[in-house]
Design a protein around this nucleic acid. Structure first.
Lengths: 143, 143
DNA sequence: GGTGAAATTCTCTTCCT
DNA sequence: AGGAAGAGAATTTCACC
């Protein structure tokens, strides 16, 4: 992991459709060497996958909300139950007033309510607190 | 936006390195037709960009935290000030006890403290409450 | 590790249906 | 809108440094 690897990662986060020739030129390497670097970054898991960023609103998911979930027991085994709810984009165990923090995307507030109901059915959940997003300033990739 | 467009989006979210020939086969179209569909999805902004998913821990960002920011005034103009802090990955205006919710990634808790200090220097900020992530169950793309 | 070039495969335009 | 085909460009491999 040297500076060239970091530059390649930055460039690919910006635009992963660039050719290896262009990437190589940007970091001062040949096409083949840039390709080999990126291949190794993938192999080592630093680059997890190549994907597309989608406009969620355009796909009918207009509401974003964060849900603080309180549990009566250690919820370390709830990952499977939570991942079965397709509207949950992220789930984290947190240090703080609640046990788990979820990021949820739904079509509307009616559907959000339905997700909360399903979260409540997960073992150990004693309460939820939803925080609805009014406006997103930015969601970006870190440099 | 029909079912084929949705299938193409799902396939590309899984793996955006697939050739148009493979994508076309998966949805029952020719390579050229699949290409044209994806081109239009990009043009219309449904597909924002093609990017890579990076293992943040491998890049030295071991700590993830959510920060609830309370403000004394309407913080609708704070986007620029917040985006100048590179450790902030997301910033949302929320309905609820605080005004703004941030997602932050830092190397350690020391650096997190430093980010909180810089957030405090943004006009109108009267308080912050950090929620540190202990374990991430999942961060995924929605189907 | 990196280079340069060859071989293969894919992209993307054009024309036709 | 989709299909077929060809020109041009990219990926990927390999011998050599």
């Amino acid at each position: 992991m040297d500076d060239i690897d970091r530059m390649l990662i930055d460039l690919l986060q910006e635009d992963a459709t660039q050719s290896y020739a262009v990437l190589g030129r940007a970091v001062g390497l040949s096409s083949g060497a840039a390709h080999e670097r990126v291949r190794k970054l993938r192999e080592r898991g630093v680059i997890r996958r190549t994907t597309i960023e989608v406009d969620q609103a355009a796909l009918g998911r207009a509401v974003t909300a964060y849900v603080l979930v309180e549990g009566s027991t250690w919820m370390g085994d709830s990952a499977g139950r939570l991942s079965a709810i397709p509207e949950i984009e992220e789930a984290h165990v947190i240090a703080g007033p609640a046990s788990v923090l979820l990021k949820v995307r739904t079509a509307g507030t009616r559907e959000l309510q339905d997700v909360l109901r399903r979260v409540f059915e997960v073992d150990g959940v004693t309460g939820t607190q939803a925080v609805v997003v009014l406006e997103t300033f930015f969601e970006r990739t870190l440099k």
